[in-house]
Amino acid sequence: MVKVAILGASGGVGQPLSLLLKLSPYVSELALYDIRAAEGIGKDLSHINTNSSCVGYDKDSIENTLSNAQVVLIPAGVPRKPGLTRDDLFKMNAGIVKSLVTAVGKFAPNARILVISNPVNSLVPIAVETLKKMGKFKPGNVMGVTNLDLVRAETFLVDYLMLKNPKIGQEQDKTTMHRKVTVIGGHSGETIIPIITDKSLVFQLDKQYEHFIHRVQFGGDEIVQAKQGAGSATLSMAFAGAKFAEEVLRSFHNEKPETESLSAFVYLPGLKNGKKAQQLVGDNSIEYFSLPIVLRNGSVVSIDTSVLEKLSPREEQLVNTAVKELRKNIEKGKSFILDSSKL
């Protein structure tokens, strides 16, 4: 079985994420860490009658949290609020993620690190560069969790099909739409690229197709506005994060993934088919991109580039737009680590 650690367990994403992973049959030990309240949350969850143990640790006990952890999820950070841009988020969350990843490199150097904190496009490069400086980086062990974009795409695709043609919409199952749609690119705004792999559905959507794309890209804004400043996507993010973590955990047991075309934001140069992916997106120097991954024993062993070989002209436009923005996001993250090392 597997020990899983959650860093940022008392936050809006961390608490429901902790609950969902306490329910997972693939977890034997759940370790919760935060600067406050993690001990109480751990005690609360430990009363649930699943077979995993659950312990919460205080802010001075990160070594105990991480010791022997095989999977580490990082939802820690400041949430989005109205008027708060992802750049603002970056400034606040970059230091948090750097500190936590440094601890992982020190106390759990072989752990698979799943970065949930936003902005993923910049924080994953921070995690990678931090581990590189420590001499602890393994390309297949660092994953940016972009799964909420797929969860939204599955939901919204059925919603728009229902609007256009209720009969066709009613024939769809939101829980299995990952067989007909995937999401690649990055994890913010126009870097998010929904790809409907069943092209007959693009035809069915007709004029709703562009509305679908925009809603997947900016769906998070709906939640920020609806919560009236009280937070961002927390419950849906926890659900998506737990689903992604469960796929990683399943791979430890050599079980087939339940989600087809499961994507993650990964470091391309270190992975099989990484160079091919760079060529297909038209930028041989871009180091990170979210694409369907192949997992083995909890790590990414290769990426599936087939989706990039079948793009429509509109999807190619989306990729080109995403790559331009991603380059800036990635550089921001890398510079945070590399520039600070020069001081």
Rank of each mutant, 00 (worst) to 15 (best):
L338Q: 13
K22H: 06
T130N: 08
F252Q: 04
N118I: 03
R179K: 10
E315C: 04
S46R: 09
L343Y: 02
G220I: 12
L7G: 06
T305Q: 05
I126H: 11
E331I: 02
K22P: 08
K22E: 00
P139Y: 03
V266Q: 13
K106C: 04
V2D: 01
V323W: 15
K328F: 06
T155Q: 12
H211L: 06
K243N: 07
A264K: 10
D198L: 04
E210T: 14
V97E: 02
I330L: 05
L268E: 13
G270M: 05
F218P: 06
I113G: 07
K275H: 12
D44T: 11
N320F: 02
S340R: 03
N297I: 09
M1R: 01
G169H: 04
Y33T: 01
L17A: 10
I113L: 14
E258D: 07
P313G: 12
S312F: 01
D60Y: 15
F90Q: 01
I126Y: 06
Y160M: 07
E29G: 05
E316M: 01
G298L: 11
G169E: 01
L19P: 03
I126N: 10
A76C: 04
N147W: 00
G282P: 09
L73K: 00
L280W: 08
V27Q: 12
L84V: 15
V181K: 15
F218R: 03
E246H: 10
E190F: 02
I113D: 03
V4L: 13
L235E: 11
A127T: 11
V13S: 04
D221I: 15
L311P: 06
A238H: 08
I48V: 13
Y26D: 13
G8A: 02
L157W: 08
V202R: 15
E210N: 11
N273K: 10
N93T: 10
A322S: 13
M237E: 01
